[in-house]
Design a protein around this nucleic acid. Sequence first.
DNA 1: ATGAAAGCGCTAACAC
DNA 2: GTGTTAGCGCTTTCAT
Lengths: 345, 345
Amino acid sequence: MTPLNDETDHRPLTLRDVSEASGVSEMTVSRVLRNRGDVSDSTRQRVLETAKRLGYVPNKIAGALASQRVNLVAVIIPSMSNMVFPEVMTGISAVLDETPLQPVVGLTHYKPEREEAVLYEMLSWRPSGVIIAGLEHTDASRAMLRGAGIPIVEIMDTDGEPQDAVVGISHRRAGREMARAIIAQGYRRIGFLGTKMPLDHRARKRFEGFTEALAKEGIEVTDQEFYEGGSALKKGREMTETILTRSPNLDFLYYSNDMIGAGGLLYCLDQGIDVPGRIGLAAFNGVELLDGLPRQLATMDACRAEIGRKAAEIIARRALDAGGEPPPDRIVLTPTLSFGDTLRR
Amino acid sequence: MTPLNDETDHRPLTLRDVSEASGVSEMTVSRVLRNRGDVSDSTRQRVLETAKRLGYVPNKIAGALASQRVNLVAVIIPSMSNMVFPEVMTGISAVLDETPLQPVVGLTHYKPEREEAVLYEMLSWRPSGVIIAGLEHTDASRAMLRGAGIPIVEIMDTDGEPQDAVVGISHRRAGREMARAIIAQGYRRIGFLGTKMPLDHRARKRFEGFTEALAKEGIEVTDQEFYEGGSALKKGREMTETILTRSPNLDFLYYSNDMIGAGGLLYCLDQGIDVPGRIGLAAFNGVELLDGLPRQLATMDACRAEIGRKAAEIIARRALDAGGEPPPDRIVLTPTLSFGDTLRR
DNA sequence: ATGAAAGCGCTAACAC
DNA sequence: GTGTTAGCGCTTTCAT
């Protein structure tokens, strides 16, 4: 039996090694390993056995260069630490797992210049498609996206002009609808609690839609409070205490995300504040975590997994030019408002 | 001015295009773009300007094939949905961001055969190193790791034999220490709540260490309860209710992770159960989320960010053969026990 | 300081 | 069914 890859020799095995060890041409070995073209059963067996015995791992770099095909999909998102993007990833993976395509993630931390760098880096690997969060990008990023010549799907947000395809929800509308629901229930002195992130365009648009709908009813946000860093749950508690101390007459608190909303809810329960009688609460995202809280927080789901799925489908269809109806280039999902136990009705 | 990359022609630009447009050889363009070797300032300027104007993005595939160098580090972990691995990633990124190396993540979902597939896939891109969670792998995976000829760091767990380097904590010891602390405080009728995951070896080892230390004092786990899927916080609530209904005489509950522990804590508070008087609670991980709870849950931190940092340092030192003292091949971190408010002392 | 030639490991296209 | 040839777009090495 031919010895296994010699431990002292650290040159990785090549197709040629398998070819020589099995007495078959490199080309045929390549065909076997990719299940391409006709190969007799006997040679196929021999090649597979040899490749396995030697521990051959194909070199995708060479393969990609020769075939001009890279089965990678660049996924560019702000962060993995809040619960929203992991769920988007789940949706993307669920779809791509059925294809030869593979997601590769790059993180921007909500910084446009980092997004630009990450995009450049990923495009230099010549992926089959790009899924990127948001519609706001630097000029250079937009130029790269346009020039890449591959399918691009911008996700999460539909309030703006996409470069190519887009899948998401309207955050302005989400903010407006929440405001309307709050007003309809008779709340009038409304506080807003959010993150200090001027570059989180989705949160900004929700807030804009929110204030816009309030303004239509002649109402203004009574007080606001912002945070950055740290445990969002804890910050939610602290901010709630701060804002209620400063503006004790507030009768509603709208949080820009569920985690701080959950903190606020726990704080109110601790303090024995009557929710939603004395004060109502609502947030945004619809994260699973909320299920475990003592009360259900009012929220609006962001359709995260669905966005991931749809985006991946667009990439898959276009990159693999699978037959059938091509998916539309613009998919606007509709978030549902859950009243939970913290928004009376 | 030469026109920008023609929109109708979707062939990506090559070094040759930049070479022709700038009137400099491909080789010199390459040198400029990589800051290698001596290039006169005038040509450097001209090349950079041309590359930018054309929107040239280098092809790393070709570059990697020619140079036999890939600045990618494969990171293979079970999941991103619990809070533990995102923090490990933060540690890894913090270190790699200072180097030319870049992490690429693959997810196994705690399935050995998936780990094998992911590893194969990643190795086929010829990364500069591998960081992989756990010490338990299929035979084929171990063969691949050994044969890859690149630095390998197994992380999280130190109870076993690594292929190469290892950074982590002893989960057996973590379980033992928690058991000793619980016994020392006089608790005797102890329940265990965990996940239905025979393949989560770290959780298994913690449990083994836990029961082993109890056994030394002649104590056995009185009752246990397991869950799978769904919101961990909610499951923690439900399981706690179930186990306390079935075994009302329990005086301590040990949870295999913080999220279900937090659910259990919220349940006990809801029910007005005296914690830690009537019943004590403890969990594992030290996740940030716990900071926002009404009471601090007793837990043991898993040194997640530190593990990521140390692992990345080992890879960076070895792959870039930076000078200086090479880090040791085996780093055993010591988790700290936080008593919080749910384990009396 | 710059260029020319050779080749990285594989696959497309074409023979046989 | 199998083999041969010619690159893929870069970088290495060596020449100038």
